[in-house]
Design a binder for these strands. Structure first.
Lengths: 222, 222
DNA sequence: GAAACAATGTCGCTTAGTGACATCGTTGGG
DNA sequence: CCCAACGATGTCACTAAGCGACATTGTTTC
């Protein structure tokens, strides 16, 4: 008993995420093609080749099936933020990372991004999808708060850190909606330098200038 | 046909709002007492003395029954913001208005506020209520953006106005959650001067200093 | 290869919502 | 004063979301 025979009980977290994502892809496609009211849980199950019951085991509602594909589309931005080295400004870091990611992105990645933008667009009209989008943004806010706390070297529970996290992620959201809308309607959303600059400027403004600039190294131990 | 016989077709908007609010009160009470999973649409209908069908005529889902009571609790803050005279700072205006409102508030008003704080608290654990809260905040954001646009004398569709609206309402939300949590757990949320100052400072920071201070009168026509 | 266990399938059920039609109450006109 | 119009609500039947319980399959480990 004491021996941890059960190494990782059940499906690995990664495996579970992959499955949820796969379901989310099909659900999002159907939502886009026939509307959310027009696609039943049965249809989603059929499209992904699982029983309906299994869908409900992985998602609490059919609208929430849209969440993973949306969450993934902001996840890489969060990942970029997470390994943002203290000595770089946000625009510098973002510009190089966007560039790198864009080169490395597979066709499947691009399809996922397209799906996500469509869901965000759908959220404008369909209140049920809007809640999915807002829930995803809510997650982003928590992560963002943690990231900001680390960068400032302060606990995440602090008032002003939480305020900065909320404001920064709200700014992020608006720009995301904006870029998505532009891309979907065929307008060029702008070059990577411009996008980086907009994001950085928005975050800097929303956090009162506390987040965005390089952080000086600690004075001790140098 | 051409004659506008139909003066005010149907229930007046005000009447409809009142009914929705009444339903929302009972629903919120039940949600708090027995959890949202533990209260059915039938129960809500029974509590408010209407048929279940009528409930669904006024609300698209049972969780959204919590929205009006929550929306109302932020509505007066929005109202305060709406008639914020240009020549006052946000803390000055808020302090006097909070004072005034607190004196004028009826017992029923206070009960509504308590219910709203409970729903916001519930939103921490119950994802379905969280979506209601997020949807209410979404509404706040739109209003806030309009208010900011007016105060700055610029169109609401502008990028930076929308960014300021999103950041400001996010800051507002965090403080609301905070004050609500404090009040519910019996901790004194602070005096009105302190609360006003916190709100004003948060908004000022989130909007990069563009919103919060007095706006100088236009130089022309003086 | 059999025990153990996690994932999925199957079936049946409860309940969130909707459509169609009946009823009631109010209003306005003759 | 009564009736026609109409809007709100009730009633009933129905679709579909989502869950509990148990059976089946597949995979790991000894």
């Amino acid at each position: 008993m004491a021996e941890g025979t059960h190494r990782a009980r059940g499906m690995s977290e990664q495996r579970r995420r992959r499955l949820r994502l796969e379901i989310s892809r099909e659900a999002s496609r159907l939502f886009w093609e026939r509307g959310v009211a027009g696609t039943s849980g049965d249809r989603i199950a059929e499209a992904v080749g699982l029983s309906t019951r299994t869908i409900w085991r992985h998602f609490r509602s059919k609208e929430s099936c849209a969440e993973p594909i949306v969450a993934q589309s902001v996840a890489w931005e969060l990942a970029v933020l997470r390994n943002w080295p203290p000595h770089l400004s946000l625009e510098e870091h973002f510009a190089t990372e966007i560039n790198e990611s864009a080169r490395r992105a597979s066709t499947a990645d691009r399809l996922d991004t397209l799906l996500a933008m469509r869901m965000i667009r759908l959220a404008d009209d369909e209140p049920s999808i809007r809640t999915a989008w807002l829930m995803a943004c809510d997650q982003v806010e928590r992560e963002m708060t943690a990231i900001i706390a680390r960068r400032l070297g302060r606990p995440a529970a602090t008032h002003d850190v939480r305020l900065a996290g909320a404001a920064a992620s709200a700014a992020f959201r608006v720009i995301n909606e904006d870029i998505g809308a532009a891309a979907l309607s065929g307008v060029n959303p702008g070059g990577l330098t411009e996008v980086s600059a907009r994001i950085a400027q928005a975050v800097r403004t929303a956090t009162g200038g506390h987040i965005g600039d390089p952080v000086p190294p600690p004075l001790v131990n140098r």
